[in-house]
Design a protein around this nucleic acid. Structure first.
Lengths: 130, 130, 130, 130
DNA sequence: GTGGTCTAGACCACA
DNA sequence: GTGGTCTAGACCACG
């Protein structure tokens, strides 16, 4: 889990995004427990209050459910919901980019090229990370 | 110029983005004056201080130069710089979407579909606006 | 921290200069927090918005990094950068004086005398302040 | 006469400084006329109102005296006053630089070095201009 | 508690 | 008319 404290996107959201994507990807399956607040706090050296806030967000989204004294568990429809949410985020990012391109008068061909280039770059990033 | 005061992206940044795209698209050419702070303030009903902040950003980016008592003028290399910046923003949006998709384990085919769908949707939006 | 509200140099710049010099002088070291906006505002009786503007400048210069909810911290290379910037400011002031002297046809000997005199005067000022 | 419309120092002040230095340097001697507002305006492509403001400043300083329908003439004590003013400006610039250096904890030796270096640089600039 | 944004309204300097 | 600075006071997001 990569936390970037310099980023403009708030830390609690970074954590929530990360776990949401993990649920969507099947790392945590329905019925399984996600890492405890304390565990995540220790691993990321993020304030427990901040982690708590991320988990609240996930619970409000219905992806996980807190069980007192036990932990937070992925709900039955959590995996599906996480996928949907993630796909929406992806679509929103694409739409935003395309809208900006149109507004700036960037030609369609260049937009397509930019997309393919971004694709290659991200794949390369991933490969390097491994 | 569409200002969304509920958006998470600050108003001054929305204004700056808007004018940057207009410069990139050739609406304001090098040597020409962009609308005065007061004019933009009136048109958007945004406080002049906020508009000023947006314009300050553009000046820091080197797209525009302020001349007291005269106005703010697009610099010689402003058009090029605005295009570059706009393209970077587009690429960044795409990369962000692709990264999120990979993290969520969304298959490549689905990502491509999402992109094409976003494309169609944005084009439709544009058509409706006209 | 001496703020001169009558000076032609804007207050926010005076504050930025002051803190930049303090960082250069090692008062605030890398990793350490500079006084909060509110604290500086209270101490100087300058409006928080104005202080914020000064701090924004320092962040743009890369001397300091803002972390929401925590404060603003001197960056690793902040100390070096502050020194460099301060030295540049000193050189610029000297160059400006020398250029003016040449333009006014003031003889070299007189310029040197003026420099030594300024030196003595400033040292005396400093002694009085203590 | 070099006018820098991008500079932070206002144009009317640039013009006034320039003429003041010329008077100090003996380019315009007591009793002689300085260039008319129209002439300066044409040569610098600066708005006549702005030139007028510069000339007003010089008159208030007692360096020149307007004679209706004839022009502006250097006063008897104008040369001396211009020299004094110019020297003051030089001293002020030096004092400002030295003060900044002290505040930033720059050691004396480095300040002296910076001065000598600035000296050499400015001399070189002048040589290149010719 | 921290920083970030916005509004309202004022005043100044410049051309 | 133009841009630039400042204050006052408010609200938000973050940790």
């Amino acid at each position: 889990m990569n936390i970037d404290s310099t980023s403009a996107v708030p830390i609690f959201r970074q954590i929530a995004d990360d776990i949401r994507q993990a649920i969507a990807a099947g790392v945590y399956k329905p019925g399984e427990m996600i890492p405890s607040i304390r565990a995540t706090s220790l691993k990321t050296t993020v304030n427990p209050n901040t982690v708590q806030r991320a988990y609240e967000l996930l619970e409000r989204e219905g992806l996980v459910r807190a069980r007192k004294g036990l932990g937070m568990f992925v709900t039955t429809r959590g995996a599906r919901a996480a996928q949907t949410r993630s796909e929406e985020a992806v679509s929103a990012a694409f739409a935003q980019g395309i809208r900006a391109a149109l507004a700036a008068g960037i030609p369609s061909t260049k937009v397509m090229t930019a997309f393919r280039k971004a694709w290659r770059n991200v794949r390369k990033e991933e490969r390097l990370k491994t």
